[in-house]
Structures are given as C-alpha cells and as structure tokens.
Amino acid sequence: MAIKVHSPGLSTTVQDLGRPGYYHIGIPLSGAMDREALRSANLLVGNDENAAGLEVVFMGPELEFTAPATVAVTGGEIPPKLNGEPRDTWTSFVVKAGDVLSFDFLKAGARAYIAVSGGIDVPVVLGSRSTYTLGALGGHQGRKLAAGDELPVGSASKSGAAGRKLPVLLRRMPGSPATLRMLPGLYWHRITEEAGKHFLADTWKVAPEADRIGYRFRGGQKLAFVDRKPPFGAGSDPSNIVDACYPYGSIQVPGGTEPIVLHRDAVSGGGYFMVGTVISADMDLIGQLQPHMPAKFVAVDMTAALKARKDQDALAASVRAALA
C-alpha cells in the first residue's frame, strides 16, 4: 500500500509525536505542531496515537491511494474531498484503490492532519518518523513532500470503521484573539516594569514568518530594557545574552521588537534574551494560528500552568474514551 503524491500542497510533511532525546545536540523534538489533532486523527482510523500522519499547512495536497484504507482529516478546517466529493473533517472515511484525496480552501485554523490506517511507514530515524527539514532528517527523505513522491503505508493492525466522528466539544481550537498563557521568567528581568505591562496588555498579530521553528508576532510596542554593561561574550545589543539553551515555547524578542515563540522544530539555543515560556498546554494552539491573526500573552504562575496541563490531559483522555 502506498500514497502517490500528485501535488504536495504548500508544505506537507510526515509527522508523528516527535523525536525526544537529542535537543542537547541541536536536534529538536519535531512532530505534529498540534499534537492533539494528530492523536485524534490516528484514533479515528484505528492507529496508535503516535503513528505517523501528514501535517498540511494552509493548502492541502492531492493524494492517490493504491489500496483500500481508512482515512481521517482533523485539526484546522481544510475540507477534504474524495474524488471531488466533500467529506467531513474529524470523521473517518473509507478510500479504495485509485481514489484521489484533495482539499478545498482553508476555512479555519492553519494545519490539518491526515491519518491513514496503518500509518505512514517511512523509516524510523532516532526513534521517530517525524520530518526535521532544517536538518534534512526523518520523514520522507528529510524534506517536505514533492509531486511524484510515493509514501509507503504500514499494514493496519485493526481497521478503523468508517463514519466514526469526534464530538465537537473534544476539538480544541484557538479563539480570537488567541490566548497564549505564558510563565514569565528566564530573562524577564531584562525589560522594564513598564515594558512588561505593555507586553501583556498589547494585542499582537502573527507575522508572515511563522513556521515549525517558531512563530513571530508583531504589532505590540517595542520593549524597553533595563540598562546594563554587556556581559562578556553576549554582544552589545541589549537583547543579547551569552548564547544559551532555548526552551520549547520560549518567547525571545530580538532587539525588543518582535516576539518569537519557538515551536516543535525549535533552534535549541542562541543569543537572544527570552521573557518567558508559553505553557505546554497552549503549544498546540499556536500551530493553528494563521498570519495576521490577533493573539495575547497572558501571564500565569506554575500552579495555573500545571492545572492547564491536567485539563489538556483530561481532554486527551476524553478523546481516547470517545474513540475507544
């Protein structure tokens, strides 16, 4: 069984839940930006949650199946069509050999996830099938899909039935403006109290430079820095630090102008100060933001961050129960 890529879409990559364990040498987690959406897609077609699927950004691909399978599309609303006929998102459907899956224009969100029963069976590299394009690692030949590619599909252990649907209440998408909860810290002390207030009060907009490495935001006021003598090795700009590790979700603000939230393909370190870190429970939401969408950063403490994490786990458990 294989999938033939007729057209690749804008930037379609093979992703599972990622490749932990190599961040210390600069190889990031990778994996689905909206992890819960990929999990749901996999469960809908009877796969393990961690099976590899396709992450589609803004514009869908056109794919032909060489054998029967069960398919589901979740995440951002990029409506699927089978041989030109509309199919529901968040709902499993059956495909036959020769069927062609294509997509309508993006209606909401930013990234859709395609799961196929059996999972995309590209080689496992360092424990994962996820694509890390910057390092040309994993996925299909370490890159986004191109026309003419053929993707191997694994054999399904149990076949998911068609017509299974995830209830609307169990689908999490960002609001408008998107609320991104963050724990202030790291180098928060580098900006003035006034700048900290602006950072949290301003409404930011997603900039066009938003990808798997990081999401850039603009439109807020420039942050003012506390005066200092540059520490040796940091560089002269007030936003420079001695190159350090970057947490996933950390918010760096080069030059104090445009915050960048690092995501699944994060650069693992560098020389820009960070004001804090988006909490783990809100990372999925960032993957569903389109350029120009408004967003606000909301400061929370560790207790609230852990509570949000529990809520996110409870959502995942409800999805499992609904699709068991």
């Binding site: 963050m182 724990l183 810290g185 790291l186 520490p231 040796f232 090795g233 940091a234 001695v242 350090a244 590790c245 947490p247 996933y248 979700g249 950390s250 960070m274 804090g276 870190t277 988006v278 909490i279 783990s280 429970a281 560790m302 961050a305 852990l306 994490r309």
Partner: peptide, 19 residues
C-alpha cells in the same frame, strides 16, 4: 534558576562567558 514553562528549568551559571 528559572522555570521555562512547566517542562524546563533554565540555570544560568554566570551572566558572562568563561571556562
């Protein structure tokens, strides 16, 4: 010491670089 969200602890040994 500073927490980087709910999954990281960030530890700065010194502000400036030295061996």
């Amino acid at each position: 010491y500073s927490f980087g969200g709910d999954e990281h602890i960030f530890v700065e040994c010194d502000e400036e670089m030295s061996l």
